[in-house]
């Protein structure tokens, strides 16, 4: 297993994809962080002329809580990046046929899949570090300059950063699980985009619309990912993510990774490679 793990690490870091995808994620998040910090801080200052009750009625978080909500964009918007890097660690092997030498060197395919799952975790963690920093640094700077509260002095903010890192870490392994089930790269990218950008957001909007506050949609991977962070822009849209304790949410997201990998191993990963 150690040897397989070492091989998988080397595969991840020996092509340019990991840092190209990371730069894309960081640039996107830095821009969004600046934009959101400016908009929310500006909005808050406009509202400050209103009586306190009216400000409460807007439902917008204030001060450090608002800062954390802005920082949470990292996980809410960019979890697709660790998801993709995990999934591509499998689909790239099929696409470039390196899966042949991989399975020749280690014919026990469950060892290969296990090593890919474990190797994805540190990669997800590094993505987390970069994505959270890329969101929070510019946003915190804007908040401080505009006279707001960046919340960096609060333990709660740092605990939030820690949970966001865990969120990113586990998302990479969810990607590996998905990749083992959908080994075709084009199909995988279509599924990832459809699920994260359309299917899940629409499903999660349904319960609040019909007046329910607890449903199975809380267990969808994106929803548990938000629950791990404990703060999300989605909560502004009435999708409460505070209900599930973050520890449970972390376990459920890990469960998604394991379940997808199990399905992938059973139905796809053991198939003939020709």
């Amino acid at each position: 297993m150690t040897a397989a793990l070492k091989s998988e690490f080397r595969k991840l870091f020996s092509t340019r994809m990991w840092w190209i995808l990371m730069i894309c994620a960081a640039a996107y998040l830095a821009f969004m962080g600046l934009l959101m910090a400016f908009s929310f801080q500006f909005g808050t200052q406009e509202l400050s002329d209103l009586p306190p009750e009216a400000q409460e009625a807007t439902g917008l978080p204030r001060g450090a809580a608002m800062a954390r909500m802005i920082y949470s964009m990292a996980g809410s918007f960019a979890y697709i990046f660790p998801l993709l890097i995990g999934a591509l660690s499998i689909t790239q092997e099929y696409r470039h046929k390196t899966i042949t030498p991989t399975f020749l060197a280690e014919p026990r395919r469950y060892v290969v899949l296990g090593a890919k799952l474990v190797a994805s975790l540190p990669m997800g963690f590094v993505y987390g570090l970069v994505c959270v920093a890329a969101t929070a640094l510019p946003a915190a700077l804007v908040l401080e300059i505009m006279g707001g509260d960046a919340g960096l002095g609060q333990t709660e903010t740092w605990a939030f950063f820690g949970r966001a890192l865990l969120d990113f870490t586990v998302w990479a392994s969810v990607g590996v699980g998905l990749g083992s089930l959908i080994t075709n790269q084009v199909a995988l990218i279509v599924v990832v985009l459809a699920e994260t950008q359309a299917v899940e957001p629409i499903l999660r909007m349904l319960p609040p619309m019909i007046g329910q506050d607890w449903t199975w949609t809380d267990y969808l991977p994106g929803a548990v990912g938000d629950a791990i962070q404990g703060a999300s822009l989605y909560s502004l849209m009435g999708m409460d993510t505070g209900a599930m304790p973050w520890g449970w949410a972390l376990l459920i997201l890990l469960g998604w990774a394991v379940a997808l990998a199990g399905l992938g191993y059973a139905f796809q990963f053991r198939r003939d490679v020709s």
């Binding site: 020996s14 092509t15 340019r16 470039h96 046929k97 390196t98 991989t102």
Partner: peptide, 21 residues
């Protein structure tokens, strides 16, 4: 097969991904 290599990986890196296993 003639082409089971990732085009973005160097020859040495390709061998190194397999060496531990």
């Amino acid at each position: 097969e003639a082409a089971s290599f990732h085009p973005g990986r160097t020859a040495l890196a390709h061998l190194k991904t397999l060496a531990p296993e």
